[in-house]
């Protein structure tokens, strides 16, 4: 009974983690940007979804849509206001661009957190579940919303897979992650590819933020921890590897759930961090990393 409960609960949490991390890793793989304002994108999407759904009484579906759009808008804002100016700056030496982007996005994330706390307070909000009720799965009372979350996460990840592997646009992205110089030589505008990957990132993160808020809730205080959690999953899976992130999300999700059930709920975040340290020691490129 408890085993099934762990399987079910862990599956939904892991799916959510996977969706949260996949955009983050894709963005790094294609454009080389580690967006440390990632948690901000999730929480902005969650807050806007909540505001539209319950503050303006426009219903959960409209709220969810508004949330995803807000995620997209925030991703573009991050790109336009922070990342692009640093990439284009002549004052910043080429080899220091990455560290400037790390610092820039980190500060942007903190600004976002402070602004959200100011506007929405630090109290967590929850977006109403898209569907209510519970269904028994092998005797475990499972909220329909949790099943929906898992399905939605996998549907979005599946759509992403199709996009990357089955469309011309996706192949451009793949090419950009492997050999950006080659891509420019073929006459592709790299900045347009980057804009595209930021758009995909925004939608993925927006989706993750909205779903997160229907289950675990979201608050401005979660901006940092959400970034950290995506970061550890991505490092564990291998930076830039989408498949690695999916595997890592499930490892982290199940490890946390197992700890919460079998040891103590308060210790749930510790074991994944220990694994992370071990991976950094023994296999720095991550589980499925390329380098």
């Amino acid at each position: 009974m408890e085993g099934v409960q762990i399987l079910v609960d862990g599956f939904a949490i892991s799916a959510l983690y996977a969706l949260g991390a996949v955009g983050f890793t894709l963005l790094f793989g294609v454009s080389g940007v580690l967006n440390l304002a990632h948690g901000g994108t999730l929480v902005v999407a969650a807050m806007i979804a909540w505001l539209v759904a319950t503050g303006l009484h426009l219903g959960t579906a409209t709220g969810a849509l508004a949330g995803v759009l807000a995620g997209l808008a925030f991703a573009f804002a991050t790109y336009a206001a922070v990342v692009r100016p640093i990439q284009r700056s002549r004052a910043i030496p080429r080899e220091e661009t990455e560290i400037f982007i790390l610092t820039g996005t980190l500060l942007w994330g903190i600004m976002c957190q402070t602004a959200l706390a100011y506007i929405f307070t630090t109290n967590p909000i929850t977006v109403p579940a898209l569907i209510g009720g519970v269904v028994p799965i092998l005797g475990v009372r499972t909220p329909r919303n949790e099943i929906l979350i898992a399905l939605a996460c996998w549907a979005v990840i599946g759509a992403l897979w199709l996009l990357i592997n089955r469309t011309r646009t996706g192949k451009t992205l793949l090419a950009a992650s492997i050999n950006p110089r080659g891509l420019t030589l073929l006459g592709f505008e790299l900045s347009r590819v980057h804009l595209l990957v930021w758009a995909i990132y925004g939608v993925l993160a927006g989706f993750a933020g909205v779903l997160l808020a229907t289950f675990l809730g979201a608050s401005s205080d979660a901006v940092g921890p959400l970034t950290a959690s995506a970061f550890s999953i991505v490092v564990l899976g291998g930076l830039g590897s989408v498949g690695g992130s999916l595997v890592a999300a499930y490892i982290v999700g199940y490890l946390e759930t197992l700890t919460a059930y079998l040891v103590a709920p308060t210790l749930r975040s510790i074991p994944p961090l220990i694994i992370l340290i071990l991976v950094v020691y023994l296999r720095p490129q991550g589980l499925l990393g390329r380098r």
Binding site: D9, A260, P265, T266
Partner: peptide
């Protein structure tokens, strides 16, 4: 800081 109360309610 707990976000998932499922294990607690389950226990």
């Amino acid at each position: 800081d707990t976000t998932d109360f499922t294990p607690i309610f389950n226990r």
